[in-house]
Design a protein around this nucleic acid. Structure first.
Length: 211
DNA sequence: TTCACGATTCTA
DNA sequence: AGAATCGTGAAG
C-alpha cells in the first residue's frame, strides 16, 4: 500500500491534535516536484488547534474556508493569513470536529537555516497554497509525511520543548506548541529556553543524508 | 456593501 | 516597536 517508506497513514492523524502535534516533530514533510525530484524537510515546530478553544478557526462556525478542518483527518488544511501568506495544517481527530496541527517550521537539508522558520515561510518554501487545501497527505498526491529514518537518533520527550502558542490573542494559556529544542530552524524560541541552539543534530543529519 | 481583524513577516 | 497588505466573516 505504502509505496513510500515510512509514510504516515491517515490513521496516524485520527487522534486529538495535541497528541499528534508533538509526535510530528522530527517527521519529514515530503513533496514530489514536477521534475520527479523530492523536496523534503524535518518538521521542527508544530501547534495544536481544537474546536472548543477560541484560537481555532473552527471555534465559531463552519464556513467554506474552514470546511476542510471539519473534514477527514489526514488531509491538508491550507488557509490564507493576513491576506498575503499561506499556512499549512494537517487535519486531525475525526470528521465533523475542527481539529488540526499547524506546521510552523521545518529544517531543510542544504538550505539556509531560516528558509522555513515560520508557518508562512514553510508554505512558501514548499510552494503550498489554497490549491493544496483538502488534499490527502499521501504519496499518491505528491505531498505527504514520512516517519524519521530508522537510523536517525530517536526524538524523545527531552528533545522537545512544550510551550504556549504564538501569534494568537485568545487561548494563549494552552501549552499546545512544541518544537525541537536544539534546532536553529524554529521560528521563535520560548521565553526562558536556554538550550544552546548550537547543536543541530537533526539538521546536520538531514544534510548528510541528502548528499 | 462596508468594516475590522488577523494561527505573519520584515524593517527600524 | 510598527507597518504592510488583503481575504474573510460579521454587521448594517
Amino acid at each position: 500500500m505504502t509505496r513510500s517508506p515510512g509514510h504516515l497513514p491517515p490513521s496516524f492523524f485520527a487522534r486529538p491534535a495535541e497528541q499528534v502535534a508533538p509526535e510530528l516533530i522530527g517527521c519529514l514533510l515530503v513533496k514530489r516536484q514536477p521534475t520527479g525530484e523530492l523536496l523534503w524537510g524535518v518538521v521542527v515546530e508544530t501547534e495544536a488547534y481544537s474546536q472548543e478553544e477560541p484560537a481555532c478557526h473552527g471555534y465559531r462556525r463552519r464556513t467554506p474556508s474552514n470546511e476542510t478542518l471539519f473534514g477527514e483527518p489526514g488531509r491538508f488544511y491550507v488557509y490564507v493569513s493576513y491576506g498575503i501568506h499561506h499556512c499549512v495544517n494537517v487535519v486531525t481527530g475525526r470528521s465533523d470536529w475542527a481539529n488540526g496541527v499547524l506546521l510552523r517550521a521545518a529544517a531543510l537539508p542544504g538550505e539556509p537555516e531560516r528558509a522555513a522558520a515560520g508557518p508562512a515561510l514553510l508554505a512558501r518554501r514548499f510552494g503550498l497554497d489554497r490549491r493544496h487545501d483538502a488534499q490527502p497527505a499521501i504519496p499518491e498526491q505528491g505531498l505527504w509525511f514520512a516517519a524519521p529514518p530508522a537510523h536517525w537518533p530517536a526524538i524523545g520527550e527531552a528533545d522537545r520543548l512544550q510551550t504556549t502558542r504564538i501569534g494568537i490573542s485568545q487561548g494563549q494559556e494552552l501549552p499546545w506548541r512544541w518544537y525541537l529544542r536544539r534546532s536553529r530552524c524554529v521560528s521563535r524560541r520560548a521565553r526562558g529556553d536556554r538550550t544552546p541552539p548550537a547543536a543541530e543534530a537533526h539538521t546536520v543529519a538531514a544534510g548528510a543524508l541528502a548528499s
